[in-house]
Design a protein around this nucleic acid. Sequence first.
DNA 1: TATATATATGTTCTACTTTTCATATGAAAA
DNA 2: TTTTCATATGAAAAGTAGAACATATATATA
Lengths: 109, 109
Amino acid sequence: MQSSEHKMEHMHGAYKLFFGALATDSRLHLLNALRHGPKNVSELGAATRYEQSLISHNLKILEYHGMVFPERRGKFKYYRLNDQTITPLLRLIDAHIKKYCCKILEGTR
Amino acid sequence: MQSSEHKMEHMHGAYKLFFGALATDSRLHLLNALRHGPKNVSELGAATRYEQSLISHNLKILEYHGMVFPERRGKFKYYRLNDQTITPLLRLIDAHIKKYCCKILEGTR
DNA sequence: TATATATATGTTCTACTTTTCATATGAAAA
DNA sequence: TTTTCATATGAAAAGTAGAACATATATATA
């Protein structure tokens, strides 16, 4: 279908940004730390051992891409995972990696 | 479950590489050019207007991640998309982008 | 086997992204 | 309202990956 091609074409930028948002250790660790429920920035710091400002910078990027949602509670700010899309996405990629990326897995173990 | 957490942990490296492989314009364009069937390197060059060595370098990365599969035919080498995983993956992300990344889409239009 | 065509590889240069550090803002408690 | 704790922002430094160019290999054909 032609229209879907045009769509694909002008969506490249968005794809690139989307994948770029997931292509760093720090942001993947942050996402992982959120898998069992929302956490505020300090809790994320305790969980990941990352510096505070690094966490803020990277949460901002994740938020911009709709991968996490913030909610202020008093002086804390809680972030929760977008379970609707991120969780199934990671599941799909799990399957891909297991099937097609054996070498990579060995390298990272 | 604990075991899945450990798995997630030592798979971070693979995730990072996986997403990194999709986080550039050139590789996304190459994947897109392959959506309607296999193409050899020259044909990819004609379709994308990228320089030959750039295409080879990037195909190598895509191949390493199991996103495309090569097949030699005479002096040509054809690459085909891994439809099993890449296509549904892109579809999932389409949905995410449309729903959560309106601002990004506007920026890239 | 010499030549032409197709693809791959190695290396350097450049641009971009992440991290870090310093500082600012925001919210609550004393 | 001053102090303290939580988070955000800005800018400079450090690290990394992509692009470009030159060259090498592979396959075919004359």
